[in-house]
Design a protein around this nucleic acid. Structure first.
Lengths: 231, 231
DNA sequence: GCCTTTATTATTGTCAACAATATCAATTTA
DNA sequence: TAAATTGATATTGTTGACAATAATAAAGGC
């Protein structure tokens, strides 16, 4: 087991020191960061050797990543890393819109005052970074991601799990392979600020509308960028 | 492998004749139908004997059902069937509301005329049953479930998968253990009819609103029923 | 009698070998 | 020469045994 833990463990399994658990994380990161490219067939003996485990825990890790939709498995044929083409990314953003809409609505109802203050502080931090770095939006992973913080505080564990443990890794994978795309820095900060005010005022309908528009705009921006890059 | 295939395979794995696949289905049904009760600790050697497979495929099946949220797994301790208490069911219905709202909106845009005609036929079938059976709503599983049919036709495969392959089994499990609760027969048929018209008219916003209200009412009805049954 | 510590047992996690299936390469046929 | 068939190889699926950990039972101390 020589794989290194490269990022914060975001999947609630940080206590899992079994080989299967550690292999799951290492394989997940290798996929997200493109070390194992999209579409690639997963060869069990090779991967087991790479991660220095036997095929048992490696198979368990693969099964677990099938559950996260990072891997597709065909009986008797084997497992393959998913490919995130434009149609799939569009689907992903549609699901995200629905779930994050609900999450924001619930967050506006359920977040504690302290959590809201924390969120405001994070937003301030992003604003300072934006101003000091020639308009570059600070896109952070995990605990310091604006969306993530809202989702984690929405008060619906199943919803948080769907977004943060199942879809989030797909989003990370997509971000990694499209890191050259310019993000909507100027708009993102404004929209996050609007959203923050809605949550602060406990206006759950407005919070839902705002975040859904925000994600829809991101979706359209991605669509345009990918279509333009294809021509 | 003596387990019998008791219901239509709803999870797109009907071609999976591996022991792991067959065990997954058998174990899933045993959980949904309460043969293995909520909260129960899963004992690998016993279950392997029960399903007449070795522990390997049984462990794979457990992992796969962890991905469907029917089982919770703790490293080194083991796996346990989830319990669906009131708070969790409420969470489940909130997630369902968000996803089915989006699915209905997409269905109103994307369903073919033929699919809409089929949906209307299913609704007629349910209406006839309602009238001939003293107001009892026909609650069917799988392909003949009204909601399921809309979701399957919404045109977003990821969304369909989330609802039909991940959350649907939890809902089935809940329905099974609460089968004595009276369903909202009279209202359900009316609301389904309203929803059908919205989709037929391609009014995606109305479709979303209607199905979200419908699911929210079901959620409140469940809350009341469970709270009354507790007193 | 209750609490703590130690020992035993059972279960979970892993490994390596064998069985089953798909894929690839070589040969044959049209 | 291309397509079909056959055989060999590699990979996936499964099994049973061993290792590691947790749970349970027994022993000791207050």
């Amino acid at each position: 087991m020589n794989a290194e833990h490269k990022s914060k463990s975001l999947d609630g399994e940080s206590g899992d020191k079994t080989l299967s658990g550690l292999t799951t994380e290492a394989l997940r990161e290798a996929i997200i960061q493109g070390e194992i490219p999209p579409g690639e067939k997963l060869n069990e003996p090779q991967l087991a050797e790479r991660f220095q485990v036997s095929r048992g825990p490696l198979r368990e890790a693969i099964r677990r990543l099938v559950g996260l939709k990072l891997i597709e498995h065909v009986p008797h044929v084997g497992a393959r890393v998913v490919t995130l083409d434009l149609p799939k990314v569009m689907e992903l953003y549609e699901v995200r819109e629905a779930l994050e809409g609900k999450a924001a609505a619930l967050a506006a109802q359920n977040m504690t005052d302290e959590q809201i203050t924390d969120l405001g502080r994070l937003l301030d931090h992003h604003r300072v970074h934006f101003e000091q770095n020639q308009g570059e939006y600070l896109q952070e992973d995990g605990d310091d991601d604006f969306h993530y913080k809202i989702i984690q505080s929405c008060g619906n564990a199943l919803l948080s799990h769907q977004l943060c443990h199942e879809l989030y890794h797909l989003i990370r994978m997509f971000r990694f392979q499209t890191s050259r795309l310019k993000s909507r820095s100027d708009h993102a900060l404004k929209e996050h600020t609007q959203l923050f005010y809605a949550i602060e005022q406990r206006d759950s309908q407005l919070a839902e509308i705002l975040i859904r528009r925000h994600i829809n705009r991101a979706k359209e921006s991605i669509r345009n960028a990918l279509l333009n890059n294809e021509t």
